[in-house]
């Protein structure tokens, strides 16, 4: 597949947003807010950055991605589907007893998922394990992991951060989706996490702060991370929760709520209008 850039990534991310909104609306449940904040980074990873082949989802030499904020399947599943891991109509089975597209990311049944996640704080450790395996096996693959800014209150994240630095895992690139909101409200009120850049630097990580909705900046940051030797990199993604749907943006109420029919139509209309504009229709 040819790598996508800029506007092409914006078009793909808009398609992913529509699929994610549809999946959550169909299921009448799911985490749309944080999915819309991380979906641009995931689209960039799967359509530009990562060395993957949907025909060979178990290729031992592939790059890997761990969705540590495992509830954001309305971002991951649509991106995997658009990338060709499974049919888009399967997303109608999201969170349904009739399918296997579980609410939180699941590796045994959902094609393309590299690690089962969902219990917050655990994903970065597994990504460290994959990166360590790459070092031990002298493989060239890279490992990516996405955390939430609420999630990093979990102490295990910092255990994992220490171990990634200890083993000099320069094949690991983590992300923190700093949308500033979590279930109970603003992250700065629930459990302040800033200054995140200084925290990770103090843990001996390379830190890049980047606009999580700017595709060119994201591609540049992921490329820069590849050049850093001897230490892991974290991208501090400055994002907007609910990005792309006006009434969901910066509203913590949309963390884990599904839109009703009317809200869904409005969200869909907004994203479709943006997509049409991108496509010059």
């Amino acid at each position: 597949m040819e790598k996508l850039y800029g506007k092409q990534l914006a078009i793909m991310a808009s398609k992913a947003r529509l699929l994610g909104l549809d999946a959550v609306h169909t299921a009448s449940s799911g985490h749309i807010g944080g999915s819309l904040s991380i979906i641009d980074a995931l689209t960039t990873l799967y359509f530009n950055v990562m060395n993957i082949d949907p025909e060979k989802p178990q290729d031992p030499d592939r790059d890997r991605f761990v969705l540590s904020k495992g509830h954001c399947t309305p971002a991951l599943y649509p991106v995997l589907s658009l990338r060709g891991y499974f049919p888009q109509e399967d997303l109608k089975l999201f969170r349904s007893i009739k399918g296997h597209y579980s609410g939180h990311a699941e590796m045994r049944h959902v094609r393309g998922v590299d690690m089962s996640t969902g219990s917050l704080g655990q994903g970065l450790s597994t990504a460290v394990g994959m990166a360590l395996a790459g070092k031990v096996g002298k493989k060239d693959y890279r490992v990516y992991a996405a955390m939430g800014d609420g999630e990093i209150a979990e102490g295990q994240i910092w255990e994992a951060a220490m171990s990634a630095a200890k083993y000099g895992l320069d094949n690991l690139c983590a992300m923190v989706d700093v949308n500033g909101l979590q279930i109970d409200g603003a992250t700065k009120d629930v459990m302040p996490s800033e200054p995140l850049d200084e925290k990770f630097r103090a843990f001996n990580w390379n830190v890049i702060v980047v606009d999580g909705h700017d595709y060119d900046a994201l591609v540049a940051a992921f490329e820069e991370a590849k050049t850093v030797k001897g230490k892991p990199t974290v991208l501090i993604l400055k994002t907007t929760k609910g990005k792309g749907v006006s009434f969901m943006e910066n509203n913590y109420g949309w963390h884990g709520k599904a839109p009703n029919d009317e809200q869904y139509e409005q969200a869909k209309t907004e994203v479709e209008a943006y997509l049409a504009e991108l496509e010059g229709k």
């Binding site: 655990q122 450790s125 597994t126 460290v128 990166a131 220490m162």
Partner: peptide, 18 residues
């Protein structure tokens, strides 16, 4: 892995996945 059993357990899971 130092005195960090939760991380050790998760890192092992990641290595097993590889």
């Amino acid at each position: 892995m130092g005195i960090a059993e939760c991380n050790m357990t998760g890192v092992a899971a990641g290595m097993a996945a590889c």
